[in-house]
């Protein structure tokens, strides 16, 4: 029979139809359930392990060196940190810094949003932003400090000035890059809805550029801390009680190295908290949810 078909027409094969077989049920794969596997699969667990190892190394080296003036051990630092917290001074200093930081940060955010909105709405605005960012972004904030002192005197205003300077330019640069990266289709869609001007910027441009804006906010936050601590190291004493930078400087002068370490630890802890609590939460609620981050 097959040979006969072959001779009649070598390429033509018989058709066939058949009923579908019942489909196989979905099978649940056994989960990798060893405890070790599950634990090492969690990123924070791995990171905390690494942190503990580094701390142990520090503790061992510190006790071997046995010179708390140069390098206090982890235990000594922890004790100093604990005292600073309990006695309230460290917390007070940290709060002084954070308060100033938040004000400066907020001013800078408003300023850079205004600048970038100006930049997307007119060619001259775009030129202005490009010019300003390329001039001022490379300028270290500390270099402006003498000028700030001249203009605003010793005090919070000078600190605010350099703080705003250090945050505005990187944030504006990132926001503007984000705005320009918004796709043509999305822009046309927004215009089709009848959106124009500020409505368009807030309903389309800002959310669409949010990944870049968020990066700018993070960079700006780090820059703000660096600038503030550095500026306080120089003249924080005159601004009332002084912030964390001044705390570090003061304790170094008194050769309380463990307290210096405690102050640095405080800066690190605040940075970690903001990154892992605030920025991570914002990310989860926005860009991750919208599928903009892979």
């Amino acid at each position: 029979m097959p040979e006969q078909i072959l001779r009649q027409h070598p390429l033509e094969r018989p058709e066939y139809l058949r009923a579908l077989e019942p489909s196989l049920p979905d099978i649940r794969l056994p989960v990798q359930s060893s405890r070790w596997h599950r634990l090492t699969g969690i990123a924070p667990v791995r990171q905390i392990t690494l942190l503990l190892l580094l701390t142990a190394a520090w503790q061992i080296y510190g006790s071997m060196l046995d010179n708390p003036l140069i390098l206090p051990s982890f235990a000594q630092t922890a004790t100093a940190f604990w005292h600073g917290i309990v006695e309230g001074e460290l917390l007070l200093r940290a709060w002084t810094s954070i308060e100033l930081l938040l004000v400066g940060y907020a001013i800078a955010v408003v300023l850079s949003v205004a600048l970038t909105l100006l930049a997307v709405s007119s060619r001259l605005g775009a030129d202005l932003l490009t010019l300003l960012t390329s001039m001022f972004n490379p300028l270290p904030a500390i270099a402006l400090l003498p000028l700030a002192l001249l203009w605003f005197g010793l005090g919070e205003k000078s600190l605010l000035f350099v703080l705003v300077h250090s945050v505005t330019w990187p944030l504006a640069l990132n926001t503007y890059a984000g705005f320009r990266g918004v796709g043509e289709t999305l822009r046309m869609t927004g215009h089709s809805f009848g959106l124009r001007g500020l409505r368009f910027a807030f309903a389309i441009l800002i959310p669409a550029a949010f990944p870049s804006i968020l990066t700018g906010l993070k960079i700006g936050w780090a820059f703000a801390w660096r600038t503030l601590i550095a500026a306080e190291l120089v003249f924080g004493v005159s601004s009332g009680s002084g912030g964390l930078g001044w705390y570090i400087y003061e304790n170094r002068n008194q050769l309380e190295t463990a307290n210096v370490f405690a102050g640095l630890l405080m800066v690190i802890l605040i940075g970690l908290a903001v990154e892992s609590l605030i920025f991570r939460a914002v990310e989860r609620a926005t860009v991750r949810r919208w599928g903009m981050y892979k």
């Binding site: 796709g183 289709t185 999305l186 046309m188 215009h191 089709s192 809805f193 959310p207 919208w290 599928g291």
Partner: peptide
């Protein structure tokens, strides 16, 4: 004269929806 909701366009690209 200008775009408006009386002429809505459906594009070829899949990114015309607001991801947020």
């Amino acid at each position: 004269a200008r775009p408006g909701p009386d002429r809505i366009m459906v594009f070829q690209e899949f990114d015309q929806l607001l991801p947020w």
